[in-house]
Computed example of a mutant assay.
Amino acid sequence: MPEAQDHGTRRSMRIGLIGAGAVAPFHVRAASVLAGAELAAVCDIDESAARRAAHLAPGARVFTDHRRMLEDDAVDAVIVNTPHALHLPIAIEAAEAGKHVLVEKPMATSVEDCDRIAAACASAGVALTVGHIQHFLPDKTAAHALIASGELGAVQLVRDNRSTDYRPGTRSPWFFSREVAGGGALFNIGAHCLDRSLWFGGARASEISASVANRFGSPVETDGVLRLRLENGVGIAIAVVSDPPTRSDSLTVVCEQGVVEADPRAGTTVRIDGRTRVLHAPTEHDIQTGFTAQLADFLQVIDGGTPAVPLEHARHVVELILASYRSAETGTTSILGRVPA
């Protein structure tokens, strides 16, 4: 586990986790190892789920209504880990209550809602970060550090292959509600792929085209293929496939002088002129390391620092998902900046 980190003379930041879903334990454990932070409360409409998460943080209070948690002044900051459409109202209510906000990805289900969250936090004078965990996972940070060093020259192409499982019944029902989730596999899993591909590509997208499939009788897309052209000329290809014979989570970055592959299961390797070397060997703690680093980033933003994931980047991810839906519906390429977001 990562060592506790110090955040100066600031008193311990009392953190409230709103939403006790699958990644809740990672958020709770992150708070437990960071000096200057404590997981003070867990809120979920399912009290049993809230209690399971709170059990990992002795002394944490349990709520079933986030408004009650905010009114009781039980926390100084919140992590919004709820279904996507709830990010907007909960983040705004937290900001209006004077609480700092870390909202899980995707930031919101529309570009307008992203802007409303950012405006509410700015107006209230509270910190805001978006939980794009890919920026903190060890296999990705090792790859990004090598590319940033300049050893491989400029990035030319990015290929991102990701498997998932969007068969109805394999995940909570809200994932299959376009109103609540914003969409299907692309809004959920595709957001991770777009986030990290843009990060490695080094620029915003100028155009995107997409094809999607709705299988298993699902009301939302279960699979999707995206092709992007970035403003710096880098090309990106992303595939999200549901329930394939083999699982995949592979990011390949083609540079002038070599190729980097990052995979949380296999680690990170680079191949240069016929020779391969390992940049990061995976460990059982890698996911937790990422969540701990993400929370540490949130704490330093509260202290006045700059977020590792710019808000404009998080907003752009949402913009691109929506543009991909337009492309899939019309069979045309979406040109960014020419179509209302």
Rank of each mutant, 00 (worst) to 15 (best):
T268D: 01
E221I: 00
A213G: 09
R227L: 12
G267T: 03
F175C: 11
A237R: 09
P264L: 09
E221Q: 06
I236V: 15
G217R: 09
G217C: 02
F187Y: 09
F175Q: 12
A205M: 04
G217Q: 05
A185C: 13
S209Q: 11
G224L: 03
P245V: 10
S242G: 06
S242H: 02
E207R: 15
S177R: 09
R215D: 15
S206Q: 15
R229V: 13
S209W: 09
Q257M: 13
R227V: 08
A213K: 14
G258H: 05
R247G: 12
G233E: 08
L228N: 06
V260N: 01
E221V: 00
L198H: 05
T252G: 03
V225I: 14
L194I: 13
F176W: 06
P219I: 03
G235I: 12
A205P: 01
R227G: 11
S218F: 06
A203C: 10
F216C: 00
P219Y: 03
T222D: 03
R178E: 13
R229N: 11
A213C: 09
E231P: 07
N214F: 14
P264R: 02
N214K: 15
S218H: 02
A262I: 05
G182Y: 00
D195Q: 07
G233S: 06
T269G: 07
S250C: 14
A203F: 12
E221L: 00
T222Q: 01
R178I: 09
G233Q: 07
I189E: 05
R178V: 12
G201R: 00
R215P: 04
V253N: 04
G201M: 08
